[in-house]
Computed example of a mutant assay.
Amino acid sequence: MRGIPVASMVIGIASAPAARRQLAQLLGGTEAFLIVSSVDQAREFLGGAETPTTEADVRPVEAVPVDGAPGAAAAAPAPAPALTVDSDRRVARWLDREIELTRLEHDLLLCLMGAPGRVWTYERLHLKVWGNKHLGRGSDMHSVVRRIRRKLATLDASATIDSVRGVGFRLASA
């Protein structure tokens, strides 16, 4: 099929937070996706491009990995040291340093590490870590994420936990 770029990205548009969460769940297995709240935001991301009217106006768009930044150069990264979790001892390890984790910190970090760059919705994380449905404002989850972020900073790890507003969290490597 001529004209279809090899690398592709799905752009989802949903104005309501609940619809964005649902899109994130549906697109969770997609290699690269972007969720925006309006067509204007999508156009801005694509460089202010007008809607193509003919095949000649269609420009291939380079895919942006979920954990990458829009517009970042796609250079081959040098192998980075990996953040690891020792589940037997319940510790996170970065280079030659390690830090203890609580059960909730351990389980949440393992979820995020299982698919780096992938957005985990609040609902999915709550079900996987707490074993029940996500209800309310999610202050329990935000508290655990805040503690993990502090511990990662203590380790000087380049891995970070990014918030995806209204959707959930993802593990990103710097």
Results as ranks from 00 to 15, higher is better:
residue 69 A to P: 03
residue 69 A to R: 08
residue 69 A to D: 02
residue 70 P to C: 05
residue 70 P to F: 12
residue 70 P to Q: 03
residue 70 P to W: 04
residue 71 G to L: 03
residue 71 G to I: 00
residue 71 G to N: 02
residue 71 G to T: 00
residue 72 A to V: 01
residue 73 A to R: 07
residue 74 A to L: 13
residue 74 A to K: 14
residue 75 A to M: 11
residue 75 A to S: 09
residue 76 A to T: 11
residue 76 A to E: 14
residue 76 A to M: 12
residue 77 P to T: 06
residue 78 A to Q: 10
residue 78 A to T: 10
residue 79 P to T: 14
residue 79 P to N: 10
residue 79 P to E: 13
residue 79 P to K: 13
residue 80 A to H: 08
residue 80 A to Y: 07
residue 80 A to C: 09
residue 81 P to M: 10
residue 81 P to R: 07
residue 82 A to Q: 14
residue 82 A to V: 09
residue 82 A to M: 05
residue 84 T to I: 08
residue 85 V to S: 10
residue 85 V to P: 03
residue 86 D to A: 06
residue 87 S to L: 09
residue 88 D to K: 14
residue 88 D to A: 13
residue 89 R to N: 09
residue 89 R to C: 09
residue 90 R to M: 15
residue 90 R to Y: 07
residue 90 R to Q: 15
residue 90 R to T: 13
residue 91 V to Y: 06
residue 91 V to R: 11
residue 91 V to M: 10
residue 92 A to L: 06
residue 92 A to Y: 06
residue 92 A to M: 14
residue 92 A to N: 09
residue 93 R to K: 15
residue 94 W to S: 02
residue 94 W to D: 00
residue 94 W to M: 07
residue 95 L to E: 09
residue 95 L to M: 12
residue 97 R to H: 14
residue 97 R to I: 08
residue 97 R to Y: 12
residue 97 R to A: 14
residue 98 E to N: 11
residue 98 E to I: 03
residue 99 I to T: 15
residue 99 I to A: 12
residue 99 I to V: 15
residue 100 E to C: 04
residue 100 E to V: 13
residue 100 E to H: 08
residue 101 L to Q: 04
residue 102 T to S: 15
residue 103 R to K: 12
residue 103 R to V: 15
residue 103 R to T: 13
residue 104 L to Y: 12
residue 104 L to H: 13
residue 105 E to D: 07
residue 105 E to N: 01
residue 105 E to C: 07
residue 105 E to K: 02
residue 105 E to A: 04
residue 106 H to F: 08
residue 106 H to W: 05
residue 106 H to M: 10
residue 106 H to C: 10
residue 106 H to A: 05
residue 107 D to Q: 10
residue 107 D to R: 13
residue 108 L to F: 14
residue 108 L to S: 02
residue 109 L to T: 05
residue 110 L to F: 06
residue 110 L to H: 05
residue 112 L to Q: 01
residue 112 L to F: 02
residue 112 L to V: 01
residue 113 M to C: 03
residue 113 M to F: 01
residue 114 G to W: 09
residue 115 A to L: 07
residue 116 P to Q: 03
residue 116 P to W: 04
residue 116 P to N: 03
residue 116 P to L: 04
residue 117 G to A: 11
residue 118 R to E: 07
residue 119 V to P: 08
residue 119 V to F: 04
residue 119 V to S: 02
residue 120 W to T: 00
residue 121 T to S: 12
residue 121 T to Y: 02
residue 121 T to W: 07
residue 121 T to M: 04
residue 122 Y to G: 01
residue 123 E to K: 04
residue 124 R to W: 06
residue 125 L to E: 00
residue 125 L to F: 02
residue 126 H to R: 05
residue 126 H to Y: 10
residue 127 L to E: 09
residue 127 L to A: 13
residue 128 K to D: 14
residue 129 V to P: 01
residue 131 G to R: 11
residue 131 G to A: 07
residue 131 G to C: 13
